[in-house]
């Protein structure tokens, strides 16, 4: 899976979780950049990402993710 594919699929996940089709995530995108990305939305986002890519994050991985770039790197490593 290429990085572009990961970001494309991540955009779809963000659109569904935040009800906003205008979101375009970048590597540096983090919670303050997206309206409504609070702690509960974060959980919904993580569950949706796991389901989209067929992966599961460990607690340690979940705590290590600050940006969408972190997320994309983990997805690339896990969804092989």
């Amino acid at each position: 899976m290429t990085e572009a594919e990961i970001y494309e699929r991540l955009n779809s996940v963000f659109h569904a979780v935040f009800f906003d089709d205008a979101i375009q995530v970048k590597a540096e995108t983090s919670a303050p950049d997206v309206d409504g990305w609070d702690s509960v939305a974060h959980v919904n986002l993580m569950v949706a990402v796991e389901s989209e890519f067929g992966i599961e994050f460990t607690t340690q991985e979940l705590e290590s993710m600050d940006t969408v770039g972190d997320m994309a790197r983990l997805i690339a490593a896990k969804a092989k």
Partner: peptide, 15 residues
């Protein structure tokens, strides 16, 4: 650091 108190006993992942 964040500690488990009444105000923080929520669902967030925070360690």
């Amino acid at each position: 650091p964040r500690m488990l108190t009444d105000q923080t006993a929520t669902v967030a992942l925070a360690k």
